[in-house]
Write a protein that binds this DNA or RNA. Structure first.
Lengths: 125, 125
DNA sequence: CAGTATCCGGGCTGATACTG
DNA sequence: CAGTATCAGCCCGGATACTG
């Protein structure tokens, strides 16, 4: 089945430069996005939970990624007005839906890492 | 089932900063990679075929992406020594395997673009 | 705790020109 | 046809310092 983009009336097609699908693909196709969405599948998490779960992510990139995911409707951000503050991040229904293909991609990479490393060492010859 | 990374002896884990899975995820998670791999599912293609199929890609980025995919063992590059030259690009078995989760991600984005655009317009309020 | 603000280098990216 | 080479701008991304 073909999806018609409501804003343009044209079929959704990532190969077309004008299709909004392109920008969304750009957002999704960042390594931090994949890891954040995947991490939130484990349940609601606070900011520090996420930064611990995702090794090597800087405060800046984590915040930036969370804001982008929130803007696209993939996660919700809940601020509890306490001292110290507490902020919970959680996947929306749309976000949980996105998590399926994203998890598949992460798993595939983990499962095939040895084959890839072998191809790489061969390519260096 | 858990994959053990042969080069380190540790389990493959994209959440770990040191795992080579991270760099591969970085390569895969580029918009051009997704589109090139997806396009090559339609069959062997020449350089110009790809540049026509993938609207908006520059020569530089297409070449760069093809070289990266070749280095990771996802595609083969075959040069026919004719005049004018002819170069064919084709997915390897590993590349066809990767294409599955990648296509799923592109399709998901195309299928949910309207929901995402609605979330975006709501976020702008 | 959960960020924001700022700086800065490096690499992505596009445009243009050129080549076997 | 299938690239390479070069330039220039901008954004990615990390490090550091600071705040309600």
């Amino acid at each position: 089945m073909e999806t018609i983009v409501e804003s343009s009336g044209l079929p959704a097609d990532a190969f077309s430069a004008k299709c909004p699908t392109r920008q969304v693909l750009d957002h999704i196709a960042g390594k931090w996005t994949i890891l954040v969405v995947d991490a939130l599948l484990e349940g609601t998490m606070r900011y520090t939970d996420l930064s611990r779960r995702i090794e090597g992510v800087s405060q800046k990139m984590l915040t930036q990624t969370l804001r982008s995911l929130e803007g696209d409707g993939f996660i919700t951000r809940t601020v509890h007005p306490t001292i110290p503050p507490r902020v919970d991040y959680e996947l929306t229904a749309l976000g949980r839906s996105l998590a399926e293909p994203i998890t598949a991609l992460r798993r595939w990479t983990e499962d095939h890492i040895n084959e890839i490393e072998q191809a790489r060492s061969r390519a260096r010859d």
